[in-house]
Design a protein around this nucleic acid. Structure first.
Lengths: 350, 350
DNA sequence: TTGTAGGCGTTATCAG
DNA sequence: CTGATAACGCCTACAA
């Protein structure tokens, strides 16, 4: 009826608790005879260690370092910060402590500097948002050299070989954007718009574009024409004019698919210009997008739930470090569709 | 630096651990003098009990009884069962055990019979799906008389006065359905279709309908005509003919909004009839709906995430019983939109 | 190589 | 009413 304890196993195998412990945890220093006796019992019964007792007893703390971009440079990174706080509240009970290190993706050496700090803090595990490919690869290699497990979120880099990756299927999200736009009966020109400071995320954006184009191609129609447009700096003073230029170049534009979280930039332009006839689909439920969803200048948002991503990252590292559980190598989160009428239901929930 | 323990408080207040324990847990039998000394210390410091140690020590188990409809009578109830299993896996660590009692909503006295069994099992808490209003009210009253906290999910009944309710905003989901349908540019007749065995869920369905109609009304257009249609028994042999009759009565039907999880019934009809020009929106990501979403006979599903509902129900009861935490009175979960291109992302995830 | 004692923070019990 | 003490199951350290 009750759970089997180490003590029970010891009695059954006619050895001491210490020996059983050594066998279970492979600490060596056990004679063949004793090992056999214990394993025989272990094979017959299903021993499930009491995690409560384990954490209470060891009273060990685990330091997890998170390395990610600074919120100040992109509001996109606000959500993961909240996910981390939530995770610390939940797993603090098990001795898990989260320390966050922010880098500025715009600034040279910022990543390297913070990466150095992370390593100096000698963490038991690392959660990483590897948006700078080369730098992240070098950092991950150093972690591996120091036997520190690395979990990645948001950006998937095969070569980085993390213990686990948590993110979303970008290609599929591009397809979803196409479904959302075409189901509104668009015809004419559809613009795929990349708004990003640097080409750092280019792989991200390219995958989304590929998914989008694949879907349109499968529709096998000539009613729509898909073009790609890039605007590098949304912080640029001439941003409005650049958008102007875009719409002048494609006067029959019916829909715009913004591949980053910056749909609000376009929505703001459309509102000022009084253009309500353009379908706009973008990414991520961030503050700046909300009022435009409410006013229908953004018709749909694909929400990647980055908060959940970082939370799961810590959760996986906890499983790994504290509970010695197996964790999945890759986990893709659901692609949430947010429109005006289900916006509030997402905001209220957390 | 380290957490303050009962032992520390005892030293500071110059009393024994036992006395501190009695004060904190209000077990009485403490002199005014001792009480004052302990409270003085308690006011100054922020004592956070160690839940790990608490659960280990008390080694108490909590029995939670769940009373809900049987899966065999409606596949809708499959998901909550999985949510319960998940919850038991997660909270079993804290001594929580879940026992599920199924009733047959079609059968007289089935609810009463199972309710009696629940009470006989003397649970520490009850999770209830109160789809039968009067019976649920009577049962909840009995629980209250026995000091058993009741948490409800899926159906909200104000008068039942549960400790907490977990569900969704039905009215808003109706509005969302209207947004999904109208954004596809429908005109002509839109049918709101209630497919349900009994009028038991009528309040549910009515709220959805109201939300839907409200949204359409706000559009202030004459291009669309909304009608309500009811089909009582999807298991009826003449079901196909009844649907036939419906479409004959409204030959210019452009869209159908099924207010239950039975959109697959209509989708199956449409596929057989070869009608691909009708927009179909329904509820719940259940097995039967999946193939029709893939083949686009169902254009969108509003997913209520019932699995999450039951999981949260147990989670709240755990907070209440084990951790003595405050729990919210009402929690509405997000309204998920599922279309063909994000279907898989929801299926893979769990 | 093996067994045992002490402790993690809390709760429950039982003498004083 | 109060204080000491033995569990809860596991881990670490130390002694045999």
């Amino acid at each position: 009826m009750k759970n089997i304890r180490i003590k029970d196993i010891a009695q059954m195998a006619k050895v001491s608790m210490g020996t059983v412990d050594r066998v279970i945890h492979k600490r060596g220093k056990v004679s063949e005879a004793a090992y056999g006796k214990v394993m025989k019992v272990l094979d017959q019964i299903d021993y499930k260690p009491n995690l409560i007792a384990k954490t209470l007893s060891s009273s060990k703390t685990y330091q997890i370092a998170t390395l990610m971009p600074d919120v100040r440079h992109d509001p996109f990174w606000q959500e993961p910060v909240e996910g981390l706080a939530k995770a610390e509240r939940e797993f603090g009970q098990f001795g898990v402590q989260v320390h966050t290190f922010f880098f500025n993706p715009m600034e040279d050496d910022s990543f390297e500097k913070m990466a150095r700090e992370v390593l100096q803090s000698e963490p038991d595990g690392v959660l990483l948002a590897p948006i700078l490919r080369d730098e992240a690869l070098a950092f991950a290699a150093q972690c591996q050299a120091n036997n520190i497990p690395v979990v990645c979120f948001n950006t998937f880099i095969e070569a980085l070989q993390p213990v686990s990756f948590i993110g979303q299927d970008l290609h599929q999200s591009g397809r979803l954007a196409a479904e959302l736009i075409t189901s509104r009966g668009s015809c004419g020109t559809i613009i795929i718009l990349h708004i990003a400071e640097k080409a750092q995320n280019s792989v991200h954006l390219y995958e989304k574009e590929q998914g989008f184009r694949e879907f349109i191609k499968e529709m096998n129609t000539t009613a729509m024409q898909v073009v790609t447009y890039e605007i590098e700096s949304p912080l640029h003073p001439d941003f409005g004019e650049m958008v102007d230029g875009m719409f002048q170049q494609f006067p029959d534009t019916q829909a715009v698919f913004v591949t980053t979280s910056r749909a609000y930039n376009i929505a703001g332009y459309l509102e000022k210009a009084g253009r309500t006839n353009i379908t706009l689909v973008g990414y991520d439920l961030i503050e700046a997008n909300i009022p435009f969803i409410e006013r229908k200048y953004i018709n749909a948002i694909i929400h990647q739930n980055v908060q959940q991503q970082s939370f799961l990252g810590i959760s996986y590292l906890t499983d790994l470090l504290v509970f010695k559980k197996e964790i999945p190598y890759r986990r893709n989160l659901p692609l949430h569709i947010i429109m005006r009428e289900n916006l509030n239901s997402y905001l209220q929930d957390h």
